[in-house]
Design a protein around this nucleic acid. Structure first.
Length: 339
DNA sequence: TAGATTTGACCAAA
DNA sequence: TTTGGTCAAATCTA
């Protein structure tokens, strides 16, 4: 019997599961911070992939067509009439939603109010004391659930052992276009950091040639003077100035005043593969001091005048910072790209 | 006053 | 029957 898709699917699950185990073991045995950071990213990717694949499997094998929230509380006819063409059977089992978890540490200086800004807009709809847990679990759903029929939810549970650590469980993927809401969001000072993960797409202005990209890499220079004066919450320990150049191996070396800060560029320019696909990733570079690893990247098209830096690790809180274009010295031939 | 949060009640899965 | 997840009215806040 030809197992076809199912065999391939099971193989994929096995491979991903094994990979996940290897990464976990490697992470447990390695104390190098930079490596730990990358491993976290790999772990997250694996877990999300597995969750999505599990969901896909459930959708394929159990038939229900998920065009509405697969929530237990929604009143849906489980035995739809065959003559009702408009009715589509909807599964009521929430476990079919793709689910993945991550742990987020919150610094004491930012207060222990829980991690809230993951780039999406959430609305809290419930809180529940959980048996055996010291802290209650909070339930959030996408703010645009009704407006854009987005059924993503997440649960936030504070760790019993470490109050600064939060376990975040996401269920379902965002189907909302929160970029669409940027105009409205921009008028709300409540979430200034949202929507900064959108990639350039179908915009000739944002599809520079490889040569231009190389020029940018070669000439990107960031001056962080006075940043801490402009950003009250800034805890970004960059030296006053750092700059970069591309060596013969296309590695972006950071030269900086502060000897404690060492950077290495991870080549991430990807040119559009087809004329129709103008998607590419923007330049990022990584730096680290003795405590943390930082990702520095352009804030992309919706906030074209901002660069961002952020950091996360298992032993330190997430720190985010945005700094304006005026702090970035660019090759004049490339400056139009950002304006 | 509109939108967000809180919290007791309800419902369904285990 | 227990417990987690969600609803919805009451309350809060900007």
């Amino acid at each position: 019997m030809d197992c076809g898709f199912n065999c391939e699917y099971n193989s994929l699950i096995n491979e991903l599961t094994q990979g996940l185990e290897h990464v976990k073991q490697l992470r447990a045995s390695n104390k190098i911070q930079e490596l730990d950071f990358h491993l976290q990213m790999i772990l997250s990717s694996f877990e999300k992939s597995l969750s999505i694949l599990n969901w896909t499997s459930a959708s394929v094998t159990q038939t229900p067509l998920l065009v509405a929230p697969p929530e237990s509380s929604i009143s849906v006819d489980e035995n739809p009439k065959s003559d009702d063409q408009d009715f589509i059977y909807v599964s009521k089992k929430r476990k079919q939603m793709p689910t993945w978890s991550e742990q987020v540490r919150v610094s004491a200086e930012n207060g222990y109010e829980g991690p809230t800004d993951d780039g999406y807009s959430w609305r809290k709809y419930g809180q529940k004391d959980i048996l055996g847990a010291k802290y209650p679990r909070s339930y959030y759903r996408c703010t645009y659930r009704l407006m854009q029929n987005c059924w993503a939810t997440k649960q936030v549970q504070r760790s019993d052992d470490d109050p600064a650590l939060f376990e975040i469980t996401c269920k379902g993927s965002h189907t909302c276009n929160q970029t669409y809401n940027c105009a409205a969001a921009a008028t709300q000072p409540k979430s200034p950091e949202k929507h900064k993960h959108k990639k350039h797409a179908n915009n000739p202005r944002t599809t520079p040639s490889n040569q231009m990209l190389a020029n940018l890499q070669a000439n990107l220079r960031v001056n962080t003077n006075d940043l801490d004066k402009k950003e009250a919450t800034c805890s970004f320990p960059f030296s006053p100035t750092f700059s970069g150049f591309v060596d013969e191996n296309l590695h972006f070396q950071m030269s900086q005043v502060d000897d404690n800060l060492v950077g290495r560029y991870s080549p991430s320019f990807v040119s559009p593969t087809t004329p129709e696909s103008s998607y590419f990733s923007l330049p990022t570079c990584q730096m680290n001091d003795s405590q943390r690893i930082y990702n520095v990247h352009h804030s992309e098209s919706d906030l074209p005048d901002l660069f961002s830096a952020n950091t996360s690790s298992t032993s330190s809180p997430i720190i985010g910072l945005e700094f304006p274009l005026e702090h970035v010295e660019l090759d004049p031939n490339f400056s139009d790209f950002f304006r």
